[in-house]
Simulated scan of single mutants.
Amino acid sequence: MIHKIIQKLIDWWEVSESKSLKKELIFCGKSVVLDKRVKIAFPDKCVIEEFVYIGPDAVIHALGGVKIKRGAVIGPRLKVHSVNHTFRNATSIPYDETFDRREVVIGENVWLGSDVILLPGARIGEGCIIGAGSVVSGEVPPMSIAVGNPVKVIKQRDTEHYAKLKAEDRIYMKLKLSKEIKQVFD
């Protein structure tokens, strides 16, 4: 019995922490679901639009700026780095005390698999799917399916089908939160 009470208190505290984190963001759209173990350093430099899900153990370092656009679904253990130490023309080695800040953008309706790493300046175009374990350091064109380290585009999504679903506003998290989509393993 005491175990259940303690668990309820822990759950309540973790939900409170998630709500607090959302309030610290530059902007947080409606129906954003952050797993209770998401960590965001410099949340005042992070924008998360509506109907976004970020899975467990994500770590987002937003000092250089991070934008996560509408409908993005992000798997567990995402790592986002929007800054790096300055090493080119640095005043010391291996790097100096300054930072190279480059915004990271995750486009609309992007799906990131588990263990994806986004490096400073990464830009993932609308409708992309990035495979588990991939490392993104540059730009991924819209509607791409990309995997690997470094990430490489291997296919393109069906743009006609995507456009039809987008026109009908069939955003996964919007449908899931409205209970139109049910969890298969419930």
Rank of each mutant, 00 (worst) to 15 (best):
H3Q: 13
Q7C: 07
L9W: 09
I10F: 13
E14K: 09
S16Y: 14
S20H: 13
S20L: 12
L25A: 04
C28H: 05
D35A: 10
P43L: 06
D44L: 08
K45C: 08
F51Y: 05
V52D: 01
Y53F: 14
G55M: 03
P56C: 11
D57C: 13
A58S: 04
A58K: 02
I60V: 11
H61I: 12
G65R: 05
I68M: 02
K69Q: 06
R70Y: 00
A72N: 00
I74E: 03
G75Y: 07
P76C: 07
K79W: 11
K79Y: 14
V80K: 02
H81E: 12
N84L: 08
T86I: 14
I93G: 08
Y95R: 03
E97Q: 14
T98M: 10
D100F: 09
R102Y: 10
V104S: 00
I106E: 07
G107P: 01
L112R: 08
G113E: 07
D115C: 06
I117V: 15
L118N: 05
P120G: 01
G121E: 12
A122G: 10
I124Q: 02
G125W: 07
I130G: 02
G131C: 11
A132N: 12
S137R: 13
E139M: 09
V140F: 08
V140H: 03
I145E: 04
I145R: 04
P150Q: 10
P150G: 09
K152P: 07
I154F: 10
T159P: 05
H161C: 09
A163R: 15
A163Q: 11
A163E: 11
K164T: 04
A167C: 10
A167Y: 06
I181W: 02
K182S: 12
Q183N: 14
F185W: 15
